[in-house]
Design a protein around this nucleic acid. Sequence first.
DNA 1: ACGCATTTGTTCGTATGTATT
DNA 2: TAATACATACGAACAAATGCG
Lengths: 257, 257
Amino acid sequence: MAAQPSPVLPERAPEPGVAAPAFSPLYQQIKELLTRSLQGGEWKPGEAIPSEIELAARFRVSQGTVRKAVDELATENLLVRRQGKGTFVATHAEEQTQYRFLRLQPDDGAASGLQRRLLECRRLRAPADVARALGLKSGDPVVWVRRMLLSGATPVVLDDIYLHGVLFKGLSAERMSGYKGPMYRLFEVEFGVHMVRAEEKIRAVAADAAQAALLQVAPGAPLLSVDRLSRTYGDKAVELRRGLYRTEHHHYRNELL
Amino acid sequence: MAAQPSPVLPERAPEPGVAAPAFSPLYQQIKELLTRSLQGGEWKPGEAIPSEIELAARFRVSQGTVRKAVDELATENLLVRRQGKGTFVATHAEEQTQYRFLRLQPDDGAASGLQRRLLECRRLRAPADVARALGLKSGDPVVWVRRMLLSGATPVVLDDIYLHGVLFKGLSAERMSGYKGPMYRLFEVEFGVHMVRAEEKIRAVAADAAQAALLQVAPGAPLLSVDRLSRTYGDKAVELRRGLYRTEHHHYRNELL
DNA sequence: ACGCATTTGTTCGTATGTATT
DNA sequence: TAATACATACGAACAAATGCG
């Protein structure tokens, strides 16, 4: 391991006016350095990061300080600790729950078991609202994907997905349709884009004619509208997803802490 | 290391049937003891609990072990740490955000500023579904509250609230209408019931005639239906709340981690 | 099957820094 | 200024889980 002398050192910045932080605890600095390594791809999703001892040596801090930094990254779901094995970069590729971000559940507890059906996959220029959400300029290239999730024969979810055009350059219908497993896994494995968190805005809307036809409900039927903005390392927004959920036999579940 | 007289002692509980943990780390035991003290009312919401040093002495463990237990209770929002002052029991009575559990937001960022209007407050016998949710027998007494939240003159939320009848014995319309501030504060101050967490099930529904009239929308208009089950210490369910939200100018916001 | 090395998990102790009163 | 309380940081030891020889 390289020498890499002390991270940034507290060093009491002389802040006169407003009380800016201007200083952060050692473990926060370590956390920041770890995040940057994740962002830079030094360790890829699914891989193990160096042991706490190694990291402590590399950053010239104690094991306990590394531990606190790793703890926080683990509670934020960027890392996963496994006793006796090591600490691993979180991944969508080997997850117990199929859909980590999908909060929709059948009203009876049963396992979801949803089938995918790909409807569209096309490159187009970003509409104004999509561009704004993804931090692009209006007209910049994006990939548009439309797909459905079905429970048996009945449609349950209609998703319109807009992806950052540059990051997802080679994405095509062929590439998607040949794929088993969650979309976020494909993003990760094929494009090296790992989603770390997301934010959703939920509304009740009435189905218009086209949506009603696709979801096999009456026009005007109430649907749950879920706008999801997903972010990768560094909180960079890379996906905007507009979902319409049928909620006659499913519900969106949320824990309030 | 010290002899460690130990608080509860792991002591291999003789669990015959199911594979229970039967052992838990010291800090988990301390956490459990602290939770029990909270539940028993030894420290009330808003009060300070003893310092880490005192707790360490009381439980015969190190300060670090107490710290870890308190850390977890703080991340679960049961306790609030304040550097230099102490650790306090979380309370709804002195909160920055008015409604801790209400995730509804105006589409433009502006502050909510919702007015309350009490419609009903009555004691009745629990319907089967309410009883089941609250862990009561069908027909047991519950308090039913119906109220609205309005943004200016337009209704936004219609809530039907069912409360555990025994715990909220003296609750009446007079007592509520005279009250400023969030309902959960009233519950806490007047009835000693502090809500620690909740779980919501969200659907899109069509407004029936009565709901439409109250919320001033067309019959059949899409509404967000939010069923919330709130729990106090020990995860005891004490409130079932059925909310109907108008989402033309508001949305339900959720963070996915 | 057994033991050993590795890695994270738990617990203790101590010292020092920062915020509050 | 001093006392108190939480926050940070270091070091050490042992426990538990894992994987390998």
